[in-house]
Design a protein around this nucleic acid. Structure first.
Length: 134
DNA sequence: AGCGTGACGAGTA
DNA sequence: ATACTCGCCACGC
């Protein structure tokens, strides 16, 4: 990580802050839509979802998932290769290895193991984003 | 102003 | 596990 303590912030739109927060999530980890908003102390899950839908290329949208670790079917399929590459802990029924064709539309991230817990530096950035809102 | 829609979440059956 | 409800809230019509 680089200079996380001082991002140039001007006032942020909430949607923009949510995208920046999403970009803090490290590979292999994930956080729920509601969790992301919670870390910013603003907005809610629906706003986080809306922000991800319009997020610029390069944003790791697959690291932001539903509270149960899933994503909408279409997105889940596109997310699968990323999870494989990042070794993201997935939840699978012991008997049913994976789920479906290419990893499956209904696979889920195992948030119990993969949940992102911001470290000190990351928390500082989140605080900066929070204070730079509006 | 209304009203439908959505990359949500929790609860209930 | 599926299929509903509600509550939520920003957007666009």
């Amino acid at each position: 990580m680089e200079d996380l303590t001082q991002w140039p912030p001007g006032p942020f739109e909430l949607s923009e802050a949510l995208v920046l927060a999403a970009q803090l999530v490290p590979p292999g980890l994930a956080v729920s839509y509601g969790g992301l908003a919670g870390l910013l102390g603003a907005g809610g899950p629906r706003q986080a979802g809306r922000a991800m839908s319009g997020a610029p290329d390069g944003t790791p949208w697959w690291r932001i998932v539903r509270a149960d670790g899933s994503l909408p079917p279409s997105l889940s399929v596109r997310a699968t290769p990323h999870y494989r590459e990042e070794r993201t802990p997935l939840k699978g029924h012991p008997g049913n290895p994976t789920a479906g064709p290419d990893g499956g539309p209904h696979l889920r991230v195992d948030l119990a193991r993969a949940r992102w817990e911001p470290d000190e530096a990351e928390l500082a950035v989140l605080a900066a984003l929070r204070s730079g809102l509006g």
